[in-house]
Design a protein around this nucleic acid. Structure first.
Lengths: 228, 228
DNA sequence: TTATAAAAAATTGGATACAAAATGGCTTCC
DNA sequence: GGAAGCCATTTTGTATCCAATTTTTTATAA
């Protein structure tokens, strides 16, 4: 144990920093859809060589965040209405099934935690603190996801998609009634979990996410004025 | 018209050939799980530079077919029992939902085609031509998948996972009754589609794939003798 | 002015070169 | 004999270089 260095002196590879950076830029909306990404430009901007840039771009491509244009670099994927719809649809399938599984194993303790998150969100709602509502709602979902971490692929899929659509959800809550309905849904989910009824759980979660989908589509594609 | 070349003289990139090659090797079982893959060795073996090798390896990693070992290259992912179970579980979720969607839009013409595939499989079954049964069963599923090609992400997910587990399915049919049961299931699926009952469709497809899962697990982890 | 074609510029794909990190074996000391 | 430390080897990570391809620009002619 003398030779084992106590602290890990591993620098993360540059390609990963680049990947995280670009991903954050895209998901935050800082890089608009349609934006052209060329290897050399990125390399110069970020001060690294093209090699790690390329590897990051390929990874982003495989996740669908950017699209290759034959030999003309990449562009940031636009979110067409259809694509957004499909993302929410996928979420509803996967998280619906996840809740079915969870309903069969969840403990009283976790149920209590979930109840707490809902109450917190409800209080924040009364005070009209939208950010807080969002925070507690996120906590609610994250806690559920943790319960299926053993199903690694399902978990990864859900978390990835969720990250991807997160940017749409914040707006959603701002819509009149959006926050309240969201909290109501979570109550229903909790109830279904308490009943430990797998079919009901799956159906309710699907409905919940489909509802979020409608709100997201509304806020995305039917903005009153200056969009994009 | 002089400048426009009549035939596309696009060579596919080497990284894709490498990717396809390695993927095939892994899925066919030619590369055993646990096998070590180093960039340089692969480069020398395949006669290309490390660059396309790396890009292929990263892609395989993102699909879970190989795993990075800190700084010690990659190894071919083993399929633990849990992982195989989860793959089939995911398939059952996704394809179940896909069938639900399909049931609402499928045409009489396609229904006729599906019926044909089933009959072909049935005849092959009578003649004990396992390869043929497998072929027609695959055709049956592929035809269904084509119907959701518009939902690009769902389609890609399904096709990818299906490719991944394909290697287990061939064995499955060899099991006594495996082929017959499979064809019976397809008949049930067709019936549910004819009824255009979304709930029934989803449930039946899930059951069908869960059944295939059981067979695969049996053939994988309870082989009578010399395995691996 | 417009269309066409050739040349120039930009950009990716692949190969190679070099540096850093990790492992494995070897030596040495107790 | 065993353990600790050091050196050589292996292998990845990044940069740079060259070739191929595509786009854009420019020049020329109708």
């Amino acid at each position: 144990m003398a030779s084992r260095s106590p602290q890990k002196k591993k620098r993360p590879p540059i390609r990963e920093s680049v990947y995280e950076h670009l991903k954050a830029e895209i998901l935050s909306g800082h890089l608009d859809p349609g934006r052209k990404l060329t290897e050399e430009h990125l390399a110069k901007t970020l001060g690294v060589s093209r090699t790690p840039i390329r590897e990051a771009l390929y990874k982003l491509d495989s996740e669908g965040l950017i699209k290759p244009r034959n030999k003309r670099g990449f562009i940031v994927s636009g979110d067409s209405r259809d694509e957004v719809e499909e993302l929410f649809e996928l979420r509803s399938i996967l998280e619906g099934y996840a809740l079915r599984v969870i309903s069969q194993t969840i403990s009283e303790e976790i149920l209590g935690q979930l109840k707490g998150f809902i109450q917190n969100a409800e209080e924040a709602l009364k005070k009209n603190k939208i950010e807080e509502v969002f925070k507690w709602n996120t906590q609610f979902h994250d806690s559920l996801h943790e319960l299926i971490i053993k199903k690694a692929r399902l978990y990864r899929l859900i978390v990835n998609i969720r990250k991807y659509v997160l940017r749409y959800r914040k707006d959603t809550l701002r819509y009149p009634d959006g926050g309240r309905r969201s909290v109501e849904d979570h109550k229903k989910i909790l109830m279904a979990l308490r009943l430990r009824d797998p079919d009901l759980c799956e159906r309710i979660m699907r409905e919940h996410i489909q509802e979020a989908r409608e709100d997201a589509l509304l806020s995305l594609f039917e903005k009153p004025s200056g969009f994009k």
